[in-house]
Design a binder for these strands. Structure first.
Lengths: 351, 351
DNA sequence: ATGAAAGCGCTAACAC
DNA sequence: GTGTTAGCGCTTTCAT
């Protein structure tokens, strides 16, 4: 082991009896180096257990670029899938992948982006919906320009662009269409009193789902008043709490559309705790089709969203040659997957 | 925006009418700089939207150090929790957190570690069990020394050290004890024919669980032949397949100990597909207590392992002053959580 | 208090 | 082919 710290290219050069430049060439292999010296260098490098300093390399322009993805929580199965897609695609392109979580705090998201600017990440992916206000939108626009100026790319993944003329790519799926489809499914099964559980005003993804829900209700001739949106936010705990409250209230409904599958999980539990059955007493649907949704009790009818593909496409778009006339906006399809959590409305509850 | 690419410290210096050195001092704030110039510099930096180049900073010794964690899959709820713990603790310490996945390939794990060496990560965390062979162990030992020589620390998280005298920290929980406890629970409930589903010979974590399972059986006076280990490996799909096969075989058993909760999820599904009920016909337990285990059908009795804490402790240990006489090995407690997937053995199946 | 200069480890011209 | 030289953008002595 070299004296204190890592061996440098100079150590290798010395040991191999060549110059640093030759070592660099021999190791990167992009310049012709006679096999003899090459071997000598390789041997020296191995003997010294030499690894190049990525920072020095990055500084001079070489070095592998980073792909960074920022999401709310890795432990959310949907985001985890997105992250997996990003990671896989980034690795396939020889990039390093950095993932950061915000815990839903827009402030931290912005800080992370700033950090990635310092780090010189070549692509920064912001995943999932956020609660946006004007100040936020302005800062994202700012960062988008800054990133673009530095030759990096910002991609918004699962959320729309915060404004026009912003140098950002966007991949998303049609939240409104998915919500419309599954609400339609509920209505077709006979439900008239459907509550939407898990609104989060300002959150682009949720707002779109709520819009789809209202649109479907209207399309089936139900009055606007038929819509009942509970803004309890996302997460299993929120779903559990809100559902329990709804049941306690004596609110009339025969079906619930949960904002995502985690909310559905919480709702499911609250329903079971109230001694009610799904779908016998209440029908329930979710959103996202997380892998374990099929293991819920009962298996959950939900909207399948291509989470992993979302991540993969995000990096693919970002890595594509900018010259190439390519879409800067891509929307992925969703479809509903019918399992066992929807049935005809309970006669008692429907009264 | 500066001409092509990011603004450098020199651009800021020029605009503020000072030298680069002064800008550096004003921005880092660790040297006394008169408020007047300080303001001027800050204003210039803001105007240019200057962000320091992290690589240049790292090269000269400053810069924030990285914490890297390598795991099998982010989409596995258990690993996701570990990652979340690492991320949270790293962020709390002002570190960047990089997560990589291996898909279970030891080769990729090793490559990632090498990458982190290049990147100069100050702590590298290897999470979860792996299938180890001698060559693997040797390379880990090698990397451990290399990392240590470079002033970084390697921490093994959820797996034992691959050998003595290796400069690595380890945090794990007692897999054997957890397995013993839950197997004991099954035996106490009356089960005598319990199959272990999800062995993975060579995988340190699974081997320990199998050992605990065997030990518990022996402790309750059952002959070694009572043990029945199905080496189907991990994952929902593997669990589903193996369970279906077991049911088809006509193997005699009244309870199943799944190697982890995902295997249990797959097994649950296979049992349901066979028209059998849990725990009426078959009792089932898992391992890890992933958040959604309580939403399984029925809610799963399992061994709770402190996944997030595992991650947090890993970075805490690594970041602790090495001088301080601290443990280099820490083991976290587990406990079983009883839900509804275990009942007395079915009379018919027990015959 | 601030500037000049050196140098972190590497690669890419540019000689020879 | 291979060595020499000149930076990449920053921090940090060392002068002033």
């Amino acid at each position: 082991m070299a004296a204190r710290g890592r061996a440098t290219i100079r150590d290798v050069a010395e040991r191999a009896g060549v110059s640093a430049a030759t070592v660099s060439r021999a190791l990167s292999g992009n310049h012709p180096v006679p096999p003899a010296t090459r071997t000598r260098v390789l041997r020296a490098a191995r003997a010294l257990d030499y690894v190049a300093n990525a920072h020095a390399r990055a500084l001079v322009g070489g070095g592998r670029k980073m792909v960074a993805v920022v999401l709310r929580q890795v432990t959310n199965p949907f985001y985890a899938k997105v992250a997996e897609g990003v990671e896989a695609e980034a690795t396939a392109h020889g990039r390093l992948c950095l993932v950061g979580s915000t815990g839903g705090d827009p402030q931290r998201e912005l800080e992370f982006v700033q950090l990635m600017r310092e780090e010189g990440a070549s692509v920064v992916i912001l995943a999932g919906g956020v609660v946006e206000d004007d100040a936020y939108r302005e800062r994202v626009a700012h960062y988008a320009h800054a990133l673009a100026a530095a030759g990096s790319r910002l991609v918004l993944c699962g959320r729309p662009a915060p404004g026009p003329d912003i140098p950002a790519l966007v991949v998303e799926f049609d939240n409104e269409a998915g919500a419309r489809a599954i609400t339609g499914h509920l209505v077709s099964t006979g439900h008239r009193r459907i509550v939407f559980l898990g609104g989060l005003p300002g959150n682009t993804a949720l707002d779109a789902r709520v819009a789809g829900y209202r649109a479907a209700l209207a399309a089936h001739g139900l009055p606007p008043a038929a819509a009942h949106v509970v803004d309890c936010g996302l997460g299993r705990a929120a779903g559990h709490r809100a559902m329990a409250e709804l049941l306690r209230d004596g609110t009339e409904f025969t079906a619930v559309f949960a904002g995502d599958d985690m909310v559905a999980a919480g709702a499911l539990r609250a329903i079971a705790e109230a001694g009610l059955r799904v779908p016998g007493d209440i029908s329930l649907v979710g959103y996202n089709d997380i892998p374990l949704a099929q293991d819920f009790n009962p298996p959950l009818t939900t909207v399948h969203t291509p989470a992993e593909e979302l991540g993969r496409v995000a990096v693919r778009m970002a890595l594509r040659d900018p010259e190439e006339t390519a879409d800067t906006h891509q929307v992925l399809g969703t479809h509903i997957v019918v399992r066992d959590s929807v049935g005809p409305p309970s006669p008692e509850r429907a009264q």
